[in-house]
Computed example of a mutant assay.
Amino acid sequence: MDAAGEFLPFHSGRIVVIPGGRPHAFRVDFAPEALTARGVLARISECFASNDTPILSLHVTGRPGEPFWAFIACEPPDSKAVERIRECLAKTPYVKGVEHSPPVIEGVAVDAWGFPPLLGGIRAVIFREPVLREFLLYGWRHMGTGFGYILYHTFFDSGAAMHREFYSRLARRREDQARLLEHVFRLTGYGVLEVAEFTDWRFAARVYDSVECKHLGEIEEAESMMIRGLLAGFVAASWGVGREGVEPRETKCIKRGDPYCEFVITRRV
């Protein structure tokens, strides 16, 4: 089993689909003190359990200085249970307010309150893999290597900005930044990243199940430029250099039949 097989898929969209069912959604607003209080979610869960209602999805959002709230999707047995749950939630300690949203269509409940999605405190845009696939294929087919340069430089700037604005603020040690990068890279869907080496002069990493390279096989001149740029920007910012200060290479690629993509970035003297 490769590294990609060690993880479990998860649903990032706040949409719950129960074919033939009647899923509902609740928004629960908490007082700031709830962020560090004990037993709050246990009390919340009891409101649903005591009304014979399973919780289908639970997302808690917030950090110091931001709104602290929860999106909860469930399937209550009837409208009376919905009202009892609402009343129970409103009486729970640290809860400031409760809102309810019925199914938007049969069998579907959605988060009717959340916007915008955030990644590292910055607005994010989520789109499905087929959109990225068509974007990559169209660009390489019609623009060739020029499209690759656009990808590289765009994602280089993105990787550098993420290092400055996110990774370096949460972790000072290079080793900790690398571990954080591995997790964020995986959770945002690029692939499964393993950083093997990260020194003052050299960075080496493997990417399993690359969302970029898996779609480039039919285009001969295409190569990883999006992920290469992202990693190069991150590394360059860590070293305090610009584009000309790094030399990134993809030494292995699933497009060529390798089990993973391998990126080696060296520092130019």
Rank of each mutant, 00 (worst) to 15 (best):
I18P: 02
I18Y: 00
G21H: 00
G21A: 04
H24V: 08
H24Y: 15
H24L: 06
A25Q: 08
F26T: 04
F26L: 10
V28R: 03
D29Y: 03
F30I: 04
L35D: 12
T36M: 03
G39D: 04
G39E: 04
L41H: 00
L41I: 13
A42P: 01
R43E: 14
R43I: 07
E46T: 10
E46A: 14
C47K: 04
A49E: 13
A49Q: 12
A49R: 14
S50R: 15
S50Y: 02
D52W: 06
D52R: 12
T53N: 04
P54D: 04
I55E: 03
L56P: 01
L56M: 06
L56W: 02
L56G: 01
L56R: 05
V60P: 11
V60N: 12
G62F: 01
G62K: 02
P64Y: 10
P64G: 09
G65C: 12
P67R: 14
F68P: 03
F71V: 02
I72W: 02
A73V: 00
C74E: 01
C74I: 02
D78K: 07
S79D: 10
K80F: 00
K80H: 01
A81W: 00
V82H: 02
I85Y: 12
I85N: 09
I85E: 10
E87Q: 15
C88E: 10
K91R: 15
P93C: 08
Y94L: 08
V95M: 13
V95I: 14
V95K: 09
G97D: 11
G97Q: 09
V98P: 13
E99P: 05
E99R: 15
H100C: 07
S101A: 15
P102L: 08
P103Y: 07
P103V: 04
P103M: 09
I105E: 12
V108D: 05
A109T: 05
A109D: 06
V110D: 06
A112H: 11
W113N: 04
G114S: 14
F115P: 00
P116M: 12
P117A: 10
L118M: 15
G121W: 06
R123G: 10
R123K: 13
R123I: 11
A124S: 15
A124N: 12
V125R: 13
V125K: 11
I126W: 15
F127V: 13
